[in-house]
Design a protein around this nucleic acid. Structure first.
Length: 194
DNA sequence: TGCCCGATTAACT
DNA sequence: GTTAATCGGGCAA
């Protein structure tokens, strides 16, 4: 039986937590799958919502680790984050893609989509398939409806630039499972030096 | 109060 | 590759 991730797991640097989350299993009301793509957002990072200090929206990021931070993106989609690091550091990991393993029928229904590869291949898609909304913002990750289990075996993790941001766009703070078919986008192929 | 823009997605050409 | 959809947050005035 896989081990449940404790709040202590999240009370570390986002750059340790993010790669360690690849291969872990996220369920919401029993529906979800393996995390195959995440991004790290540090409070010193201009692209982070917490960069300019506390506001009504990002309050949860300034709270203790091991909680969900959910925000609305482009007025249309929801995006799920895990708050990390010691309290007050206002850093988090964005969940960008999942390999569906549990509750496939429910996810297909919610997404009105048969193609499994695209069910959770993007932050907005993950929230639609797992039915995550602003109502989940501020909830602890070690209690219902959330369940997060540590990965059970070795996983190949790759890193690259984050997706869809304009500030600090060059930082390689996107982490994914090497070779996964369920990524929101492929990772850039490593280039040979000239 | 007004204005700009975004950690996106799907449907186009 | 390009673009519409859609709206709250954050900052200037």
């Amino acid at each position: 039986m896989p081990k449940r991730l404790s709040r202590a797991f999240f009370s570390r640097s986002v750059h340790e937590v993010a790669p360690d989350l690849i291969g872990a299993t996220l369920l919401v009301n029993g529906v979800g799958g393996r995390l195959v793509e995440v991004e790290a957002y540090h409070h010193t990072d201009p692209a982070a919502h917490s960069f300019r200090g506390p506001t009504p929206r990002n309050t949860v990021m300034f709270g203790p680790p091991g909680y969900a931070y959910v925000y609305r993106s482009y007025g249309i989609h929801w995006c799920l984050n895990f708050v990390c690091e010691p309290i007050g550091s206002a850093s988090a990991v964005l969940v960008r893609a999942i390999e569906p393993t549990a509750g496939l029928a429910a996810m297909r229904r919610r997404r009105d989509l048969a193609e499994v590869r695209l069910l959770c291949s993007g932050p907005g898609r993950v929230c639609e398939a797992l039915r995550i909304t602003g109502a989940h913002c501020g909830l602890p990750l070690d209690a219902p409806p959330f369940e997060i289990f540590a990965r059970t075996g070795p996983v190949g993790v790759v890193a690259g630039p984050r997706i869809g941001i304009t500030k600090a766009a060059d930082l390689p703070w996107r982490y994914g499972e090497k070779g996964s078919r369920f990524l929101s986008k492929p990772f850039p192929v490593a280039k040979r030096s000239a």
